[in-house]
């Protein structure tokens, strides 16, 4: 696959270029990397890389729909992840390094790292299977989608989700705003992700 040529750094540049160069305000971009399970032969999409931009009203909508218990849980997970990355023991809750509340979209992006899609499951899997972009705009449409990930996205404040198949995987874009399908962004994603070499940038 051409994506075998993408290393982590060029993936990050590509995702960043999509988000920062877009006319629309996208909250995040994720590259789901395609592979085949050697044991079962099943097609698998798993986390390749992601770029989180956040949304302009992150600060105003810190809590979103989350409860105090949700926040406590999210902060504890972030403390543990910080510790895992740094190698230092996690700080006690009262000397918290993660004192800012974890927004719904931050949390959705974070839990995405642990997700995968088998044999065309989910919106990313569907896009890969059909080799065409899947675009869902509107909270109501996401909430009623036949896809757990789309419903989860809506529950965490995402209003628009687009999945665009590219060489070796699928690029997923999410926004807290309402963005209708446009060919410009899908074309841009395809161009950025099918150049197929590590010459980028």
């Amino acid at each position: 696959s051409s994506t075998a040529c993408f290393n982590q750094e060029t993936l990050q540049y590509r995702l960043q270029a999509v988000i920062e160069g877009a006319r629309e305000s996208w909250t995040y971009a994720i590259f789901w990397q395609s592979s085949v399970d050697a044991a079962t032969g099943a097609s698998l999409l798993a986390w390749g890389d992601g770029y989180y931009r956040g949304c302009d009203d992150d600060k105003r909508k810190l809590r979103g729909a989350s409860t105090a218990a949700d926040q406590e849980h999210r902060k504890r997970v972030l403390r543990e992840l910080n510790s895992l990355i740094s190698g230092a023991p996690p700080p006690a809750a009262d000397e918290d390094a993660v004192d800012e509340e974890v927004t719904d979209t931050e949390w959705f992006f974070l839990v995405s790292m642990a997700q995968s899609f088998v044999d065309g499951a989910g919106l990313p899997g569907h896009a890969l299977l059909t080799a065409s972009a899947a675009w869902v705009a509107g909270a109501d449409r996401l909430a009623s989608a036949a896809c757990e990930r789309a419903r989860q996205a809506q529950a965490f404040g995402i209003q628009t989700m687009a999945c665009i198949p590219v060489g070796g995987g699928v690029v997923e874009l999410g926004s807290t705003g309402l963005i209708y399908h446009n060919a410009e962004i899908t074309g841009k994603v395809r161009a950025l992700f099918t150049s197929g070499t590590d010459a980028f940038p």
């Binding site: 982590q8 990050q12 990397q33 986390w47 890389d49 989180y52 543990e80 895992l84």
Partner: peptide, 29 residues
């Protein structure tokens, strides 16, 4: 959990670092 795949670990590290920067910046408050 102690053995994250490298792609996830790098993504996670980047996300956590950027998050710290984002919330540290007084101009964004």
């Amino acid at each position: 959990e102690g053995d994250l795949p490298i792609a996830r670990k790098k993504s996670l590290q980047r996300f956590l670092e950027k998050r710290k920067e984002r919330y540290r910046s007084p101009t964004e408050l």
